[in-house]
């Protein structure tokens, strides 16, 4: 899923300075699963903003909504009947959802209420970790199912580097070395011959480096 963290409330209040009536829009997709932008978070954030604004002597009216998904046009359309009745939309969906709203509602300012993070997993309740950078050319079959692009701090294809120590990466004591994990997995899968092959330079053109990406599937149109 796409993960994120709430923006500091001070930052949100500052963004809201010019406005007195807003829509606060959550999303039932990824951000609900990672507890940063679902219905419940909409309620908490709306209360927080109202309290803060009222305490500062300038009330704000907030319409609380939660869309099925902010990244699909049909759900975004549900806001059309009322969106222009408000001065701005504060969205706590991921950056993709927020932008999609912005694209569809050209006359309404869109404000981000979360900092979108990474493609990750719930390692345990309340803890999420990155797993994939969407490089567009997956190599997991060669690396024991562990991503060198994401889980090695230097995205090396022939790791580990000299900074790997007792399974820990040089960047920090709570960062596991991705290459140690790859090697452990390859060993247990009996695939160490994958390790000792020289790998071609990665083509980053399928990644963000090739410019904004688009997928067109004729069979789905």
């Amino acid at each position: 899923m796409i993960t994120g963290t709430p923006k500091p409330i001070e930052e949100i209040l500052q963004m809201l300075e010019p406005y007195d009536t807003i829509i606060l829009a959550g999303c039932y997709g990824c951000v609900t699963v990672c507890r940063v932008g679902g219905e419940k978070e909409v309620e908490i954030l709306a209360s927080t903003i109202r309290l803060a604004r009222e305490a500062s002597g300038r009330k704000i009216a907030i319409r609380e909504v939660c869309l099925e998904r902010q990244c699909d046009p049909e759900y975004i359309e549900t806001m059309r009947p009322y969106v222009e009745d408000y001065q701005a939309v504060l969205s706590i969906a991921c950056g993709a959802g927020i932008q999609f709203l912005a694209e569809k509602y050209m006359l309404t300012p869109l404000l981000p209420g979360i900092n979108t993070g990474f493609l990750g997993v719930t390692e345990r309740q309340g803890e999420w970790a990155e797993r994939c950078q969407g490089c567009g050319d997956c190599v997991l079959h060669l690396t024991g199912g562990i991503c060198p692009v994401t889980r090695c701090a230097k995205s090396l294809f022939h790791g580990p580097c000299g900074g790997s120590s007792k399974g820990i990466c040089e960047v920090g004591k709570d960062v596991p070395c991705g290459w140690q994990m790859i090697i452990d997995r390859l060993k247990s899968l009996n695939q160490m011959d994958n390790y000792s092959k020289l790998k071609p330079y990665k083509g980053w053109n399928t990644s963000r480096d090739g410019g904004p990406r688009r997928i067109v599937r004729e069979d789905m149109i």
């Binding site: 701090a153 230097k154 995205s155 090396l156 580097c161 960047v171 020289l198 330079y201």
Partner: peptide, 28 residues
């Protein structure tokens, strides 16, 4: 060489490139 991660220097906010790795640089 690969180089130490930028986190250790003056500019921990720098983008890390690592387009190819040290093995591939030798090859290059």
């Amino acid at each position: 060489l690969s180089g130490d991660h930028q986190k250790f220097g003056d500019d921990p906010q720098a983008k890390n490139v690592f387009d190819i790795d040290s093995m591939q640089l030798i090859h290059m």
